[in-house]
Design a protein around this nucleic acid. Structure first.
Lengths: 161, 161
DNA sequence: TATTGTTATACTCTATAACTATA
DNA sequence: TATAGTTATAGAGTATAACAATA
């Protein structure tokens, strides 16, 4: 991996960067840069996604439903690390937009199974192009270490959970 | 770097993990795991920090003020990548808690200069211990690649800004 | 008793725009 | 005109707790 070892100054990021500012101990904190990087990535994605009427969190939900037809809401919540009460309004929005449909499981009446509609599939493949373009930028930055980089991010998520 | 190359299933994370769930394309997205990892890191920090009456964002502000006595609010905002209107209530809280003091610059009456109080310094060195313990977990996960890992996070922040 | 999903509610973080005061 | 900081306001994202229906 390249990079690292810069002077402990400034966050280049989101608003011009305060280049004369000494970040002190913060500079050695992985957590700090995790926040800074995630923030930049999220905003960059949101910028392009917004034009397509998409909130970043929705994209993950659509992908998971696409890959797991019939998934329940609580299950979806676990997959994207969100409470079921957070999932409810998200699902409502996607249903209102007719991107997904839902029906109750015949054998277990509690369970609401989620599926993409045709429109949902079409929409998803359109926004996937934007997602890939966005993540392509990240890929170029991270380069050959991508698998290892993602591996570390996963381990952070797993071990700090 | 170790890690990587797992099956594209589940997010181990924050709430038990939905191990049967296929994440599909999401699994290859750096942005997705950046969110998952940052979220886990933030929550873990917040858990311990909360007991010390500290919101995670405050810590970064205190560190920057400690390292840059007399820094202005807008400048602080640039350093931590937040708008000045976001900085205002943060500063108010820290002042109410007597952790920082502020005075106007004599030559430029617009400018509010920020300094830690004695109590602020004492408080900061206490919470630094918790921050270090938290980031120590991240250090152990990331291991020898820490500098390179942070380098990549910085580049992501810089290039996506 | 446990689980699925809903609702009511509240909290945190954040930004935009308009404002005051200074420069 | 431009900058520093404040205020009002709004929106996203999130969770907790209590609830109804079902298992």
């Amino acid at each position: 991996m390249r990079g690292g070892n810069r002077r402990p100054r400034a966050v280049g990021g989101a608003n011009g960067g305060a280049v004369g500012t000494d970040l002190g101990d913060l500079d050695g904190y992985i957590g700090f840069y995790l926040r800074i990087a995630q923030d930049a990535s999220f905003r960059a994605f949101a910028r392009t996604a917004h034009a397509r009427n998409l909130k970043p969190g929705r994209f993950a939900a659509l992908e998971v439903i696409a890959r797991n037809p019939g998934i329940g809401q609580s299950e979806l919540g676990r997959a994207i690390a969100r409470d079921k009460s957070t999932v409810t309004p998200l699902i409502q929005e996607l249903r209102e937009r007719q991107l997904i449909r839902r029906h109750r499981n015949a054998r277990d009446g509690r369970r609401a199974e989620l599926f993409l509609t045709g429109a949902g599939r079409a929409y998803l493949s359109r926004i996937r192009r934007h997602a890939r373009r966005h993540d392509g930028k990240l890929d170029r930055i991270v380069g050959a270490d991508k698998a290892a980089f993602i591996g570390l991010l996963k381990r952070i998520a797993d071990e700090l959970a």
